[in-house]
């Protein structure tokens, strides 16, 4: 398997092996394998078309793999829809801010999972806004996401604050693992910093985070482990404490793949 980390007693939350995915003639994922342990931040990096998003889409139920095994929370699973993956405790934060900008933070965090009033009113679909509001406040406080006023429509907030709400939503509902596809791509420097802090906050709650990014400094700043994909294969795994950005770039482009292996990265 992958690098055996000393002292890691727990089972991985998610373990996938030999995943293959074709899009017509394109072999998008070649025997990709990945394991994620509780309380770690794993960065998925790779050039455009390396298969990062495809891998995440497979893991979150958006795409079905052609072959391969997936063990989640100790059981072999096969998600046929994102809803199934979500029901199992997997949440995803998308690059393009999958929020409803005209709704406020409370409505967005509970979107699709609204709490209704007890009794008949609930059966008629009446919302328990007070309860949703309280739980949102708690969640945002826990994650230290600061927004000016809870009742404001997200369109009036900054990009970072909006992404904060999106992450808070994912974390709120993710009991097992959170995936983030380029969560900082649309953000400025300060806002990116806020999201990176948020990723650490999530990790500190024990829930692992898998995130895709192009931004090497960000990756090295926040990741515990870096997994490099190239042409659909997992070609290297780097430890950000020992590897350099150059190493990562070289692994991504494949120029010194042999050397990269030699430097302690293990091919999956």
């Amino acid at each position: 398997m992958v690098k055996a980390v000393a002292g890691r007693a727990m089972e991985p939350v998610l373990q996938v092996e030999n995943i293959n995915k074709h899009f017509g003639a394109v072999h998008a994922l070649r025997n990709a394998s990945l394991a994620v342990w509780p309380g770690e931040v794993v960065a998925l990096i790779g050039d455009n078309g390396a298969g990062k998003s495809t891998l995440v889409n497979v893991l979150t139920g958006v795409l079905r793999p052609d072959s391969g095994t997936m063990i989640f929370a100790g059981e072999r699973v096969s998600f046929s829809s994102p809803q199934e993956a979500r029901a199992a405790g997997i949440e995803t934060v998308y690059q393009d801010l999958a929020i409803a900008p005209h709704l406020d933070a409370v409505a967005n965090i509970f979107l699709g999972r609204e709490l209704t009033m007890p009794g008949l009113a609930g059966h008629l679909g009446f919302l328990d806004n007070g309860k949703m509001r309280r739980e949102t406040e708690e969640q945002l406080t826990r994650l230290r996401v600061r927004i000016p006023k809870l009742g404001r429509r997200l369109v009036t907030l900054s990009g970072g604050q909006r992404q904060g709400v999106a992450v808070a939503r994912a974390v709120m509902w993710a009991s097992k693992i959170v995936f983030m596809d380029e969560p900082t791509a649309a953000l400025g420097v300060a806002q990116t910093e806020m999201v990176l802090d948020l990723i650490r906050e999530v990790r500190n709650t024990g829930i692992p985070v898998v995130f895709i990014s192009h931004n090497m400094p960000n990756v090295f700043e926040v990741a515990d482990r870096i997994v490099v994909l190239r042409l659909g294969e997992v070609v290297a795994e780097l430890d950000p404490r020992t590897a350099s950005i150059d190493d990562a770039v070289l692994a991504m482009t494949g120029a010194r793949r042999r050397d990269a292996r030699g430097e302690g990265a293990v091919v999956g």
């Binding site: 809803q83 979500r86 999958a98 409803a100 709704l103 679909g125």
Partner: peptide, 24 residues
């Protein structure tokens, strides 16, 4: 204003893809 129906109405108009992603 007060029901899930209304909430979904706004959500779909605000961002249909997001509404689909959260399972509406």
């Amino acid at each position: 204003n007060f029901t899930r129906f209304g909430r979904y109405t706004y959500a779909i108009g605000s961002n249909m893809a997001a509404a689909r992603r959260v399972g509406i």
